[in-house]
Design a binder for these strands. Structure first.
Length: 277
DNA sequence: CGATTTCCCTGGCCGC
DNA sequence: TGCGGCCAGGGAAATC
């Protein structure tokens, strides 16, 4: 489940590989989530990221407006580069879940495989995210000065929703998903179910914890539980460093009590019943 | 309008 | 071995 560290890992690998290369063609699976892949044209300027969205800048061939190819990997989306001499290519027996592909100048294609089709592709005028609600309404990056202990605290105080649900909503801070939310709340010793109030010290702990767990995830090339792979097809390593997520029934590394698993607003949640009050 | 619920998808795993 | 049932879950649409 690609979250910020996984998407950023892919971005860092993809940018030098496709920067300055013209697109020569595209193929799409054809359902609404992927069909806009066909609209992409021009030359790649750079690959950037906002939250869990990859943004591939495209300089127009001539006269037309510059575009951005927006890719969200969803749950099982994978990007890879493959040798492919044909200008457009669809699924094969060895890649049954191809959803979109873009031929690059020089005989290589950028392939987007996504078994469960939770991912999506959009092409917009550069910088215009008005048609993409999720991206348009995205909160600050975790390292943006606009994301502060106070902004985090105000979000919790000003809402009736649980703190974990707010983190997953992408509007308080961008890029945190289920794994890193559980990790950050554990590190900060705050209950995922906390709602309506958050002390300033607790907000400060959580703010730091969010940055720390995302940095650690990035350092380890992301978390691979089952599906995530980087651009080269390799797994991440951060699953070896998780303190909370996936450890239900195992002892809390702080207090030794068994971590509990429960559902919170439809999301599987793991937390320590003692030190995350 | 904000909050909550439902739906989208399929591979992998479990139990019989 | 085969198979039905269930779970994973980000985001957007639908509904409350």
């Amino acid at each position: 489940m690609p979250e910020l560290p996984e998407v950023e890992t892919v971005r860092r690998m993809l940018d030098p590989r496709i920067r300055s290369r013209p697109l020569r063609g595209a193929w799409t699976f054809g359902t609404p989530k992927f069909e806009q892949a066909l609209h992409a044209s021009g030359t790649v300027t750079q690959v950037s990221r906002r939250g869990k969205y990859l943004l591939i800048g495209l300089q127009a061939d001539r006269g037309e407006r510059d575009q951005e190819l927006v890719i969200h990997l969803g749950m099982t989306g994978r990007l890879s580069l493959a040798e492919d001499r044909s200008l457009v290519s669809g699924p094969t027996s060895s890649r049954p879940h191809l959803r979109a592909s873009w031929a690059l100048d020089g005989g290589e294609s950028l392939m987007f495989d996504d078994a469960r089709r939770f991912g999506r592709v959009a092409v917009v005028d550069a910088g215009d995210y008005s048609a993409l609600a999720g991206l348009r309404d995205l909160g600050p990056e975790p390292w943006d000065p606009a994301f502060t202990p106070a902004s985090l605290r105000h979000a919790v105080v000003g809402s009736r929703r649980a703190v974990k649900t707010l983190l997953l909503g992408q509007r308080v801070v961008a890029g945190v998903g289920n794994i890193y939310a559980d990790e950050a709340l554990w590190m900060a010793a705050i209950s995922p179910r906390r709602r309506g109030r958050l002390s300033t010290p607790a907000a400060t702990r959580l703010h730091s914890a969010i940055r720390e767990v995302l940095e650690a995830g990035l350092e380890h090339g992301g978390t691979t539980l089952r599906d995530y792979r980087d651009l080269a097809g390799d797994s991440g390593e951060h699953q070896l460093h998780l303190a909370c997520y996936g450890r239900a029934g195992l002892p809390c590394r702080r207090c030794g009590v068994q971590l509990q698993r429960y559902e919170l607003d439809g999301r599987s949640t793991t937390a320590c019943p003692v030190c995350q009050r």
